[in-house]
Structures are given as structure tokens and as C-alpha cells.
């Protein structure tokens, strides 16, 4: 290995950097850099995905169950899902300011159309017989929604949440790259100016690790909470 390589850091350099960023407090602020960045990013990511999931559940069930709502909303959702979210980023920054709201909004706008369409599709897939059957057991529309449709939609929502982790990270890092005071994406794009590959590499590995753990955890949660899904396949 070339010790004078300015682009690729040696493993030793990277280990030093990791020790500095992840395990020692910054002498000026008294904070551990990696931890500050991670918590800032995770807060934005999970808030964005959480809001998107909650709205998806509401809109997806309404669109899937009520033909009137479907006729009205489906075309709107189709068009909105075609808007490239990153092109909206400047608009969000200008209208909502440079703080957390615009970044979280970008994630919500970016992942929600796909999730809504997926969930509404799942609801539409439910056999007509099931709905009729529930009605013959005395179910009101509300009871059909909470006892028949919702429990069968939830596992799909978790899967869709998991699959949207990738896009959500993309939107998060794009937003942080432009303006932030902390965050994993912010840090990567900050040290990029100094070609600090010894920081960028570990950060990329760390982001990947976080994403993998989240994805795995969601899959476990789905299997644990909805054991019948696997049986049906």
C-alpha cells in the first residue's frame, strides 16, 4: 500500500479516525461526533417514515375501501408519485426553511405515494367474499375496516416501510448534503471538501449497517406479529 496515497486512506488511518469520531468527545463541544450525527439523522429518517406510514394507513385504507375516494384520489396520487421529490427540495427549503421540517417533509413526499399505492392495492386484493362474509356476521363498515381490512393490511405496510428505507435514506442524505448542522449525510458532504476518505468510508459502512439492522428488525417484527402471513404462501 502506498503510504503517500492522498485518496485512499490506510486502514490504520481509518481506525484512528473512527476512534476519534466515534469514541472520544470533541474537545470543543464535549460531544461525540458520530453519535450527534447518527441521532440527528435517525430522528429525521424515522419521523419522516413514521409520518408517511401513518398517513399511508389512513389514505390507503380509505382509497382501497371506498370506491368514491378511490375515484377521486387515485389519479391525484398517480400524478404526485411522478413528481421527482428531489426537484421539490429547493421549494421545500424556500417555503419551510432550512430546519428539520423541510427534510422530514421531503422524506414523507418521497416515500408516501409508493406506499399508498401498494397498500391500497393490497386492500383491493382482498376477496369480495371476505367482506360479504363479515357483513353476514353482522359487521358494520367500521368493523370491517378494523377487524378484516386493517389486520390484513398491516403486515404489508411493514414490508412497504422496509422497502422504502432505501429511498428514505437517499432523500435524507440529499437534504442533509445541502443544508444541516449535523447528520450522517451532512458530515460526509462536509469532509468531502478535504477529500477525507478516512471519514467518508466509515460513515458509509455505518449507514449501511444501520439500514441493514432496521430492515432485519422490521422483518422480524412482521414475522412475530403476523405469523399467519408466512403460512398462507
Amino acid at each position: 500500500m502506498n503510504a503517500n496515497d492522498k485518496l485512499l486512506p490506510s486502514l490504520a488511518t481509518m481506525a484512528d479516525t473512527v476512534a476519534r469520531m466515534a469514541f472520544s468527545a470533541d474537545p470543543r463541544t464535549g460531544e461525540v461526533q458520530l453519535w450527534v450525527d447518527t441521532s440527528a439523522s435517525l430522528f429525521r429518517l424515522l419521523t419522516g417514515l413514521g409520518i408517511a406510514a401513518a398517513l399511508t394507513l389512513l389514505i390507503g385504507l380509505v382509497v382501497g375501501m371506498l370506491p368514491v375516494a378511490r375515484a377521486a384520489l387515485a389519479p391525484v396520487i398517480d400524478v404526485v408519485s411522478m413528481v421527482p421529490p428531489l426537484a421539490l427540495l429547493p421549494i421545500l427549503f424556500i417555503t419551510l426553511g432550512l430546519g428539520e421540517v423541510s427534510k422530514i417533509t421531503l422524506i414523507v413526499i418521497g416515500v408516501m405515494p409508493v406506499m399508498v399505492r401498494d397498500l391500497a392495492g393490497r386492500v383491493l386484493e382482498l376477496p369480495r367474499e371476505q367482506i360479504v362474509k363479515a357483513q353476514t356476521l353482522g359487521a358494520s363498515s367500521w368493523q370491517v375496516a378494523i377487524r378484516v381490512v386493517l389486520p390484513q393490511a398491516l403486515p404489508r405496510l411493514i414490508t412497504s416501510f422496509r422497502l422504502q428505507l432505501g429511498p428514505a435514506w437517499l432523500f435524507l442524505i440529499a437534504a442533509e448534503a445541502i443544508s444541516a448542522e449535523a447528520g450522517l449525510g451532512y458530515r460526509i458532504f462536509l469532509v468531502r471538501r478535504f477529500l477525507a476518505m478516512d471519514v467518508i468510508f466509515p460513515y458509509v459502512v455505518w449507514i449501511t449497517f444501520l439500514a441493514v439492522v432496521m430492515s432485519w428488525g422490521l422483518e422480524r417484527l412482521r414475522a412475530r406479529a403476523f405469523p399467519w402471513v408466512e403460512l398462507g404462501q
Partner: peptide, 8 residues
């Protein structure tokens, strides 16, 4: 004939 019971 089918789909009379709830899979969940």
C-alpha cells in the same frame, strides 16, 4: 366455496 374464513 373459497375465501369463507379469515386467514389472519
Amino acid at each position: 366455496q373459497r375465501y369463507s374464513v379469515f386467514p389472519h
